[in-house]
Computed example of a mutant assay.
Amino acid sequence: MANNKALGTGGRKSDKDFKIRVKTAKGRKVASTKWLERQLNDPYVARARAEGYRSRAAFKIKEMNEKQKFFKRGSRVVDLGAAPGGWSQVAAAAVGSTDANPLVVGIDYLDMDPIPGVILFKKDFTEDDAPALLIEALGGHKVDLVMSDMAWPTTGHRATDHLRIVHLIEIAADFAIQVLAPGGAFVAKVFQGGTEHELLHMLKRHFATTFHVKPPSSRKDSAEAYLVAKGFKARPDDDEAGDSEA
């Protein structure tokens, strides 16, 4: 006879033991089926829906903020690669941004529905006039946090994809150095394979600390992580000045 105490539930499976299985429908690729199955079984997807966030990605910036304290009331924030808007939602609530006094501005080439307290632009950040547009939207004020969740669509060629994401990080970091107030912070999505040494060297000259984090809501089987740079230093006039200060 089975020992119900040993089984823990009298022989019944707990809710976490049940998993939704999705059959491959006609015309649906296997990869799409696996993605749908993963979404249906992802607790962060359910939490995002329940708490009114536009994506599970909202929890990544929330979890990072719990430890790193990025957001302070009254802080100004720029969100690069903002769609669908989860990070901007979190930022707006945390810094007290309102439609009357917007402190958060986001940009993405994808469509986004309006977010209270956030100025949103549908535009590719890599376009030459994009940085000036963001700066103008915040009235020319310096920024306390630049956050980037940007990523190119993958090609399937690992080396190419790595170079493309590093390029995005570089232009995001360059923008951050142009607009951050002293003490400000920069956070950007990266992928395993390493951040280029030149980029890290540059960030270390401009920030007090740099490190990588992988928040709990980032899927364990995902190669993504986040590069964090904190304590922005006043921008030196040239590279020689920056090296002498170090």
Rank of each mutant, 00 (worst) to 15 (best):
L7M: 05
G8H: 03
T9C: 00
G10C: 10
G10D: 12
K13Y: 09
D15Y: 11
K16W: 08
D17C: 00
D17M: 04
I20G: 00
K23W: 02
K23R: 14
K26S: 11
K29C: 04
K34N: 10
E37F: 00
R38K: 14
D42C: 02
V45G: 05
V45P: 02
R54W: 00
R56W: 00
R56E: 14
A58Y: 02
K60A: 07
K60N: 06
K60Q: 12
N65A: 11
Q68Y: 07
G74L: 09
L80W: 09
G81M: 03
A82N: 01
G85I: 12
G85N: 08
G86V: 12
Q89N: 09
A94W: 13
V95A: 06
S97M: 11
T98E: 01
L103H: 05
V104L: 12
L110I: 03
D113Y: 05
I115D: 08
G117W: 01
L120T: 13
F121E: 05
F121M: 01
T126V: 08
E127Y: 00
D128Q: 13
D128A: 15
D129L: 02
I135K: 08
L138T: 11
L138I: 14
K142F: 05
L145F: 04
S148T: 07
D149P: 00
M150F: 05
A151Y: 00
T154W: 00
T154E: 11
T154F: 00
D161Y: 02
L163A: 15
R164P: 09
I165L: 15
H167A: 15
E170Y: 06
E170V: 14
A173S: 15
A173Q: 10
G183K: 06
G183R: 03
G184P: 07
F186W: 10
K189C: 05
K189F: 04
V190L: 03
F191D: 13
T195Y: 01
E196M: 08
E196I: 08
E198W: 13
F207V: 11
T209I: 10
F211N: 07
P215A: 02
P216T: 15
S217K: 03
S217M: 06
R219N: 14
D221N: 07
E224H: 03
A234H: 09
D238F: 01
D239H: 04
D239W: 12
G242T: 08
E245G: 04
